[in-house]
């Protein structure tokens, strides 16, 4: 495919995301400052930080929901440039799960799941529906296929949202605070699905404050503040031996209660 040819050669065979000196401004407000991050295939990364630290903005740059002004970004071998085809190619490879689910309220669950495969990947309808049912079973709600999103609980909706992304067979999954809009009793069912996904070797970038989840599945935990990556480490080191006082303070604030 021409898109692949335009991509720059990978610097390391396994790096599926390469972010170099990424900078972003909202007007004159500097949101992301010199972000450098390489993600290996199959790696699970948890990103945390206070609100306004730029963590959501960073992962939203990866599938170009946000533009950036300087730096470079290569996703699965395709460089993010000002080109409609490149952007669409990258979005096909990257799944995203949102804080507020963003299911399409006018479509049934099944239609939500098959929309991408049918219109973007041009799959036949039967095949798309079979795949959709497979993923619905994996997130444990096959019986809701013909309902509308409004009829489901928050936790169920979020699991549908995960299944919707998986139907596009993405190489990378981005999670933008997937549990923070959920009632407490529903968080676990969503996290369970995510843990299962991690166990299967999916490359995941996850903005979340669920520290239990981070300890359990993350290969690396990143702490962002003021638009910078302040600290990154293995979960063990991250939680037990924070290097900066900033992270120490943050951890004490979120773990206090």
């Amino acid at each position: 495919m021409s898109v692949e040819q335009q991509g720059q050669p990978l610097s390391a065979e396994d790096d599926v995301i390469i972010i170099k000196e990424l900078n972003k401004w909202y007007g004159s407000f500097h949101v992301l400052k010199d972000i450098n991050l390489n993600v290996k295939r199959g790696e699970k990364i948890v990103i945390c930080g206070p609100s306004g630290s730029g963590k959501s903005t960073m992962i939203r740059c990866i599938n170009r929901l946000e533009e950036f002004q300087r730096g470079s970004l290569i996703v699965n071998g395709v460089e993010m440039i000002e080109d409609v085809k490149n952007i669409e190619a990258i979005r096909r490879e990257v799944g995203m799960v949102f804080q507020h689910f963003n299911l399409f309220p006018h479509l049934t669950i099944l239609e939500n799941l098959t929309l991408g495969p049918i219109w973007v990947q041009k799959k036949p309808k039967e095949e798309a529906e079979a795949t959709a049912m497979k993923y619905l079973e994996r997130v444990k709600i096959p019986d809701q296929a013909n309902k509308f999103p409004g009829q489901l609980s928050g936790g169920q909706q979020q699991r549908v949202a995960i299944a919707r992304s998986l139907c596009m067979s993405p190489q990378i999954m981005l999670f933008d605070e997937p549990t923070s809009a959920l009632d407490p009793e529903m968080i676990k069912e969503v996290l369970d699905v995510m843990v299962e996904l991690a166990d299967e070797g999916m490359t995941m970038l996850c903005v979340t404050h669920e520290m239990g989840f981070a300890k359990k599945v993350a290969d690396r935990v990143i702490f962002m503040d003021g638009g910078e990556i302040v600290e990154q480490n293995t979960p063990h080191e991250f939680f037990d031996n924070p290097e900066t006082d900033r992270l120490q303070l943050f951890l004490s604030q979120i773990l206090e209660h």
Partner: peptide, 27 residues
């Protein structure tokens, strides 16, 4: 229409017209 609907459609890789006609217009 919440901004999230546009973002969800974008993240699936839908083109502008697909997004407009399939997601936004019916709502």
């Amino acid at each position: 229409i919440p901004q999230g609907q546009y973002e969800a459609a974008d993240s699936l890789g839908l083109s502008y017209w697909q997004k407009t006609l399939l997601i936004i217009f019916p709502q």
